[in-house]
């Protein structure tokens, strides 16, 4: 059975989550799987919170947000789920910490682990930039365009609606494979046709992911990217 743990949140906030998710706060001596609610999400808190026995780490920002992953299945399979706001995903860049949690928990080879980190980073970047911040139509092909891209980026990160949309990342392990999913709360992503020009300045993220994962596909009208890796 799952229980809740808080890291930088008040007992009142934890009790609120316990009621909304139907998960109890810890019983003394119990050492089963945990859902961790993190108040101030920095890199250290993220690394601590993704270690076993955590199966889910939810950033507290006006609440824990809606849970996108099936917690019961995560608990059964010893998966890992992370939900954080767009602003935190941009500031903390969680791919490295998630990779380390996955590498340790599932005993991955270095080569697979590196591929997972690259793919996670690209998927999270797409969820943040194209999904939640809706920056797909803002060009960044040239140095001049990058100036306005950065201005719009900072405006949208500070936007109370866009900046607080969530990015959800989770992994479900199976004996021979790991399936990762990255979900955003944007309008849905339709990838442009891939260019093979090595000098293009953008649009190579999905190409990179497809070159690293055994299989990739989109779910929920492009709001969720799934990537499968061999173990």
């Amino acid at each position: 059975m799952l229980h809740l743990r808080g890291d930088g949140v008040t007992q009142g906030q934890l009790a609120e989550v316990a009621e909304s998710l139907g998960i109890p706060t810890p019983v003394s001596g119990y050492c089963g799987h945990e859902v961790v609610i993190v108040g101030d999400l920095d890199e250290g808190a993220l690394r601590r919170s993704l270690c076993r026995p955590t199966i889910a780490c939810l950033e507290w920002k006006d609440g824990p947000g809606a849970v996108a992953a099936p917690l019961a299945e995560l608990e059964r399979s010893d998966g890992i789920y992370l939900s954080l706001t767009t602003g935190s995903a941009f500031a903390v860049q969680p791919a490295q910490a998630f990779r380390q949690a996955v590498e340790t928990r599932y005993d991955l080879a270095e080569e697979t682990s590196e591929a997972v980190e690259i793919a996670l980073n690209e998927g999270i970047a797409n969820a943040v930039i194209h999904g939640n911040l809706d920056m797909g139509g803002v060009p960044r092909q040239t140095a001049d365009q990058m100036d306005s891209f950065c201005s719009v980026l900072n405006e949208r990160l500070a936007d109370p609606i866009r900046g607080r949309r969530r990015v959800h990342v989770w992994v479900m392990p199976a004996p021979t494979k790991l399936t990762f999913r990255i979900e955003d709360e944007g309008a849905g992503y339709r990838p442009a046709p891939a260019s093979s020009d090595p000098a293009r300045t953008s649009g190579r993220g999905l190409v990179l992911i497809r070159s690293l994962a055994r299989r990739t596909w989109l779910e929920r009208e492009g709001r969720r990217l799934a990537m499968e890796f061999r173990r």
């Binding site: 980190e117 690209e122 140095a143 293009r200 953008s202 190579r204």
Partner: peptide, 17 residues
């Protein structure tokens, strides 16, 4: 220690400049 596709894009912008 790590570069992603956006980082590659930024180096290409430097190349254009």
């Amino acid at each position: 220690e790590f570069i992603d596709s956006a980082g590659l894009g930024m180096l290409l912008m430097v190349r254009d400049t």
